[in-house]
Amino acid sequence: MGQVELRTEKETCCGGLERRERVLKAIERHRHVRGALIPVLHDIQDMFGYLPEEALTLVSEQMQIAMAEIYGVATFYSFFSLEPKGEHVIRVCLGTACYVKGSQAVLDKLSEQLAIPVGKTTPDGKFTLEAMRCLGACGLAPVLAIEDHVHGKLLPDDATKILDLYR
């Protein structure tokens, strides 16, 4: 629970006036777009790193879309997250090219090093470990991405070195 509290303190969503304004602005920006729900969710996730419930409530009120429908969309797509993420999100590619070249071992090593299962965040809120489907950088397999930075041609032992870069 540590990381949730930490996040809430740091990123209070729509209780904070400024953050509420930003969500409203994102909604406004797409006001005239048909099928705007997904673009709005993308914007909100860009702001907070996840989709805070308060922000979704605001979307529901403003866009006249039932919360149930928003929840359905938000949980359908793997890109969206309802939980806060760590400061650094490590995404290990489990696409076919990476898998054939041993990315599972890299993922296992990271999971061991960080002492968290895949999909979870470290208690200090520093790292979230995720498996992803193909980054499209198959020429560098196996790869992982931290934020927008891609690390390629990995061996399991590189995991420690890469973590050190972000610690």
């Binding site: 997904i38 797509y77 890109f79 969206f80 489907r133």
Partner: peptide, 25 residues
């Protein structure tokens, strides 16, 4: 431009259309 959000099934035409409409793909 419309961004996908990580759903393989959206490569299917009708699913993709639903996604652009703002629904589950």
């Amino acid at each position: 431009i419309r961004l996908g959000a990580g759903a393989f099934v959206c490569g299917e035409e009708t699913a993709l259309i639903n996604s652009i409409e703002g629904k589950r793909g």
